[in-house]
Design a protein around this nucleic acid. Structure first.
Lengths: 196, 196
DNA sequence: GGGCACATGTAAGCTGTTACATGATTAA
DNA sequence: TTAATCATGTAACAGCTTACATGTGCCC
């Protein structure tokens, strides 16, 4: 009954805040939903066309000029509430970092440390970005502020957890016996040689 | 130069631990990589065929019986190290929960609370599962144990962060003025009526 | 008049899941 | 013998990204 529910939800949600062009929509999604959501043009424009077709959004000022803004309709608002009420489906996890770490002995502690340091840096950066968003939200507060702060807080909790984990993990990696390129077990002090 | 690197990495990694059938591979990935990785049959079998074609894995005992185990070759081990050494690409975030919360005013605090409680329950469950895995790892410890524990710890940090956030958020939601199905601002005590 | 930001859309292609078709082996 | 589990593979399709093609409007 509904192809591309996810994108529709995000787009309708953004339009529920204010009418926008597709281009502005993408900027809005990147800038304000960016820390937990993303949409590309390839998703946005077809979604807008579909919303228009279903009468959930209307195109305004399209007339021969290049740009047209879309506004949500009452039916669109109803649909948005419907979509929001459906249970969020947790997406299957896929962490390239943890995959590399799991098989980290193949790589050696040094390379692993490099990866973890990168992750740590990303977390720190995200924390800084979220602090800015938080300030902005508090500055021009509106009726949605409380809800939006919850999403910011989620990002902060997650980033702080990443920081803590990274520090713990860097310490653990530092304590590990260095590199073993031949795939043999690190062995406390007596290197073994097996493997064909 | 390489289609489906991600799946190849996971499959080669699993095969580097021990030879397996495609079916067992999926079980292994689900059970031991499950908290941060997933692969479906539709990925695994084509990947195995590709690995065989490239000489990175060999099929053993395929002869007319239904089942064949795959073993990693030296070239496969080399390829695995190569793949592991590439930088993990952070996937674009997509949290259905946070999307719903961001537009939570459309739903009302009660529905939001339900979602957050579900997330909290999932986090608690994951924490319990990770505790089991941790015990297993410590019980039959091997040369990879330290690395694997790091991935477990990542899951634990993340789950604890989710718990903390959920509790904080539930409290915030409880403090919010109830439901406003018409989309008007919640307004401290004088409900407004606008909107067509 | 040259470049940049705004703007719209499509096509190709990759990644991944689901469902299906098929069959062997084993335990109740 | 029948059900469950083990096992292999494919086809269809959903979702998403990237790159491209195209054009406008404005400022320097």
């Amino acid at each position: 009954m509904a192809r591309n529910d996810q994108s529709q939800t995000a787009v309708l949600g953004a339009l529920s805040v204010s009418p926008m062009t597709g281009y502005a929509l993408r900027a809005a999604i990147r800038d304000t939903l960016g820390h937990f959501w993303s949409e590309s043009f390839g998703q946005i424009y077809p979604t807008l066309a579909e919303l228009e077709r279903q009468g959930l959004a209307v195109r305004q000022g399209a007339e021969r000029t290049g740009s047209s803004t879309f506004a949500i309709t009452p039916a669109g608002t109803a649909r948005l509430r419907e979509l929001l009420a459906t249970a969020p489906q947790p997406s299957p996890p896929r962490s390239g970092l943890l995959l590399r770490l799991f098989f980290g002995r193949q790589l050696g502690p040094e390379s692993c440390q490099a990866f973890v340091r990168q992750a740590r840096a990303r977390a720190e950066q995200q924390l800084a970005q979220l602090a800015v968003i938080r300030q902005e939200l508090l500055h021009d507060a509106g009726s949605d502020t409380a809800y939006r702060l919850m999403t910011v807080s989620a990002g902060e909790h997650s980033a702080r957890a990443a920081l803590d984990w990274a520090d713990e993990t860097l310490a653990a990696l530092a304590a590990l016996p260095s590199h073993d390129a031949d795939g043999s077990p690190p062995a406390t002090s007596h290197p073994t040689e097996e493997n064909p």
